[in-house]
Simulated assay, not measured.
Amino acid sequence: MTTNVTIATLDGQQMPAYEEQPDGAPRAAIVVIQEIFGVNVGIRSKCDALARDGYLAVAPDLFWRMEPGIELDPDVPDQMQRALSIMGQFDQDGGIRDIEAAIRYARAAIDGGKVGAVGYCLGGRLAYMTAARTDVDASVGYYAVGVDGLLGEKHAIAHPMLLHIAGDDGFVDKEAQRRMHDGLDDHPKVTLIDYPGEDHGFATEFGNRRSDAAARQADARTAAFFGEHLG
């Protein structure tokens, strides 16, 4: 069942979110962290798929403090440029606090059960930050940007994390990917998986960026990861 909900933030305000509930009792909850395009049809579709797998899925509107309800299409050039501009204005530290609020909301909704997080692009970076800064039980990042600049936080990652890396990512070059491997390959809680030849956004639900075979492979690995660590 799909609902639009509001989540009490850590500073006492109300953040809008998209929520999809499974047919039966949730096996766990997963916070879905948006790309730079907002909680658009692709992110909502990710929530729907997780609900079909038995999870309560919640996608907080992380841009709500700038402008609630932003939905952009990366295949439309003007909208892509607007998304890049919004990303430059976005307070990522504040975003993590809002994600923490979403984790608390989701955990309360399932009576204290386990909560995971999955993010894409900017959301992949935020998933890494979430793993380091919150008590999330498991996290997944797809083609996360700028993680090589956040390696100083890796010591704080206490729960399992999976990172899907696009081998030909136009936003994460080969050198950045090497630094990610050098910094994280020996981390006992972090697993990195490379997708040679794939570009940024390969696992999007819709549009020109999707690479179907790689997307299905990555999503199957994510499902197995959450099945193992969330139940």
Rank of each mutant, 00 (worst) to 15 (best):
G94W: 05
F37A: 00
G69K: 00
I110A: 04
G69L: 02
G94Y: 05
A102S: 11
V145Q: 10
P74W: 03
H181P: 01
V118P: 00
G38Q: 04
G183P: 12
L230W: 10
P26Y: 12
P60K: 14
M87K: 15
G207A: 06
D148Y: 10
A214H: 08
H155A: 15
R210K: 15
Y142N: 00
R52A: 15
S45Q: 14
G123V: 01
A51K: 01
R65N: 06
L72E: 04
H155Q: 13
F225T: 07
A109R: 10
P26I: 14
Q92E: 14
G119K: 11
I96H: 09
V115R: 10
L84M: 14
R216D: 15
K174P: 00
L126N: 06
D91I: 05
D135P: 05
G24S: 10
G123P: 02
G119E: 04
D199N: 12
T130L: 09
V41Q: 15
H229A: 05
P160T: 01
V76L: 13
D219V: 08
M80F: 15
A106L: 09
D173G: 01
Q217T: 11
D199R: 11
A215L: 00
K174T: 13
I96Q: 12
R82A: 13
V190W: 03
P22G: 05
A213T: 12
L163S: 12
I103Y: 03
G112L: 04
R27W: 08
A214N: 05
I70N: 06
I33N: 02
G146Y: 11
D137T: 09
R27K: 13
P22T: 06
T191I: 02
L184R: 03
G141D: 06
S85E: 15
N4D: 14
V58G: 08
L56E: 02
L50E: 00
I86H: 09
G152I: 10
I193M: 08
A166D: 05
T130M: 03
I36H: 00
A176Q: 13
H164C: 07
H155T: 13
E228K: 09
G112N: 01
Y142R: 02
I36E: 09
D168C: 03
N40S: 07
P74Y: 08
G149E: 15
M180A: 14
N208T: 14
E228F: 02
Q81G: 13
R82S: 11
E71A: 08
D169W: 03
R104E: 09
P196W: 07
D48F: 14
A213K: 08
G201V: 05
T3K: 12
V118R: 01
P196G: 05
R52W: 07
I43V: 13
D168G: 09
G113F: 00
G69H: 10
G183R: 10
G201P: 04
A223V: 07
L192M: 10
P22M: 04
F90V: 09
D48W: 07
T134A: 02
L192T: 06
Y128F: 15
D23V: 12
D173Q: 00
Y128T: 03
H181L: 03
N4H: 15
P60W: 08
A83V: 06
Q21F: 06
I165W: 13
